[in-house]
Nucleic acid binder design. Structure first.
Lengths: 134, 134
DNA sequence: TATAATCCTATAAAAACAATAGGAATTAAC
DNA sequence: GTTAATTCCTATTGTTTTTATAGGATTATA
């Protein structure tokens, strides 16, 4: 049940951007130094957040990234889902496809409930909340 | 955040043993056929459950496995933790070691809460509950 | 025009996952 | 007592996922 580095780093990036949210663009060089993650790896992760519209980017000199919404508008769940692809405990819960044996599966209700419990919690916490948890 | 086949199959085995709990020993051959999992792979998984004292075994002809306690005494969490090793969303939460930067980590409180939410739910559900969920 | 940044695609090393294989040990049934 | 069926043990293997790294094209500012 591990969150991969993609999810963890994506969250760290969002937190970092929130903590240095002064209207200017923050470069990956800065974030990489502060969070001790390689720039190259961060590029891939921030790329996902960028495509999803979670951050804005500016190319060229003095470019970088910045948040597009208020910190209270980003949930931990939304960030992690974008970065990880899915948070479901079993693949049967992904997409519309589902599993063929879903009807007879005795375990499925448990996974469904677990998925909901996780989702409910992570969607209840915003970036703002995380900054205040510290 | 996926549960691996170890955890999923371990749960399936426990459910199968519960559903065929007539006091006799159930062979892996039967379980493998019903659950559509290879016997060889099941051996490894049931071995874990056996060592942990979750099931009793009998070797030799007409041997197999059986539950040792009432179905209400097994929680989903206990089964999954034994099979998976840990259910924590980040390794920082495992063991006494922890992470060096735990004090300054802005994400850690979120992971701690998520871990608790997951654990609380999975410990609240017993094998008996799962059988009745169907 | 030089510099510093994002963006894009491909590649690779390492780890985890998901099994499979072969046989030793044990026990019940015949 | 012999056979057959089963657990138990250790090692190995193939695949997939994870975790990056590399090189360079593109873009925009100073």
């Amino acid at each position: 049940m591990r969150i991969s580095t993609k999810g963890r780093y994506a969250l760290k990036v969002m937190i970092d951007l929130a903590q240095h949210n002064d209207g200017t663009y923050i470069s990956l060089k800065e974030i990489a130094a502060r969070q001790d993650i390689s720039i190259k790896y961060l590029e891939a992760i921030v790329g996902i957040l960028n495509k999803a519209g979670f951050v804005g980017s500016q190319r060229g000199k003095s470019g970088g990234y910045r948040l597009l919404r208020d910190t209270g508008e980003y949930t931990a769940g939304s960030i992690l889902k974008i970065a990880e692809g899915s948070l479901a405990p079993v693949s049967c819960l992904d997409g519309a496809s589902g599993c063929e044996k879903a009807d007879e599966c005795t375990s499925l209700p448990l996974w469904r409930n677990l998925d909901r419990v996780v989702d409910d919690y992570l969607e209840s916490v915003t970036l703002k909340d995380i900054l205040e948890m510290k």
